[in-house]
């Protein structure tokens, strides 16, 4: 393998890994905050892509006007999701009910997207364009790297770093963590848990939807984007359940494994990812970076 091919594939894999990591980080934040495994994560991701496509293609908003509008709509989607799927079920006695409800939510989001925007895939303009309107390519030492992949890595990494700092370093993040760990005690000392949970849902919705927007120029906007959540699940488990750092590293690994296995057997690339998942589960069920924790979700 030439160095050129290697670096192109590496950037491609890393970009996909960052996308999976955004999904995975959202999953972990939700599991920590409310203990719910969200099977509609991929559909939120898809819906984010559709919303940004609508803002750009239908309303022709300029880039800087689009960002705040998109953020507000992502937050609204997150809050609606919370108050329909999580809030009525927070006291459900049967763990499977909430999971089934998120599956129902996945169907609803998928169908809503088709009803509102039609079944045809919508193609999105790439963020960095050549003067002719094609996808711009970054050339480093003779190695062509598509700008979109580079931007996915930069934007995704920045967003995840911000959210990580928010949760781990800031006072408000500590409040949120306290509410996650023991919501009863948090309520007693005056933390409004409903607000912290709503904040978590909004943040997760933004994170995941931005991911959907970033990949949409590559895959077009269509209602099968949601299947990427399976790779994110794999990343979460490979990295370690309930551990943000582990989930991110695991997802990056999944992206790289997926892209590099296309060299030899492109049709079977899913096999390599999920076989790695099964092997990791058998050898180290707590994940590569996980500490032994109780099974919460």
């Amino acid at each position: 393998m030439s160095l050129q091919l290697f670096s192109t594939l590496f950037i491609n894999g890393l970009a996909m890994g960052v996308v999976y990591a955004m999904l995975a980080m959202g999953l972990i934040l939700l599991i920590r905050a409310v203990g719910i495994l969200n099977f509609a994560q991929g559909e939120m991701f898809m819906f984010g892509a559709y919303i940004s496509a609508a803002l750009i293609l239908d309303f022709h908003l300029p880039f800087f006007a689009m960002i705040p509008v998109a953020m507000i709509s992502f937050i609204i989607v997150g809050l609606i999701f919370m108050f329909t799927i999580y809030w009525p079920l927070r006291k459900a006695s049967y763990a499977a009910t909430t999971i089934i409800a998120t599956m129902g939510a996945a169907i609803v989001l998928r169908e809503l997207a088709v009803l509102i925007w039609g079944a045809m895939p919508r193609s999105m303009p790439p963020l960095m364009q050549t003067p002719e309107g094609g996808a711009a390519i970054l050339n480093i030492g003779g190695t062509p790297l598509p700008w979109q992949f580079v931007l996915i890595i930069i934007v995704g990494a920045a967003l995840m770093l911000l959210i990580y700092l928010l949760f781990e370093k800031l006072y408000i993040g500590k409040l949120m963590q306290a509410a996650c760990q023991n919501s009863y005690a948090a309520n007693l000392i005056g933390i409004p848990t409903i607000l912290t949970i709503a904040a978590t849902y909004s943040i997760v919705s933004i994170l995941v939807s931005v991911g959907g927007y970033m990949v949409s120029p590559i895959f077009t906007v269509n209602n099968t984007l949601g299947t990427m959540q399976l790779q994110a699940f794999a990343g979460v488990v490979i990295g370690g359940f309930g551990n943000i750092k582990g989930a991110i590293i695991g997802s990056l690994l999944v992206g790289l494994i997926e892209v590099f296995s296309t060299i030899n057997f492109s049709a079977y690339r899913d096999v390599s990812v999920f076989l790695v998942l099964i092997v990791v589960l058998l050898l180290r069920p707590q994940g590569l970076f996980g500490e032994k924790i109780a099974d919460k979700a």
Partner: peptide
């Protein structure tokens, strides 16, 4: 156990 088992069955379905 538990959720890990669920994930492994998802992997089985995909493979």
């Amino acid at each position: 156990k538990g959720t890990y088992f669920t994930f492994s069955t998802i992997a089985l379905v995909q493979v």
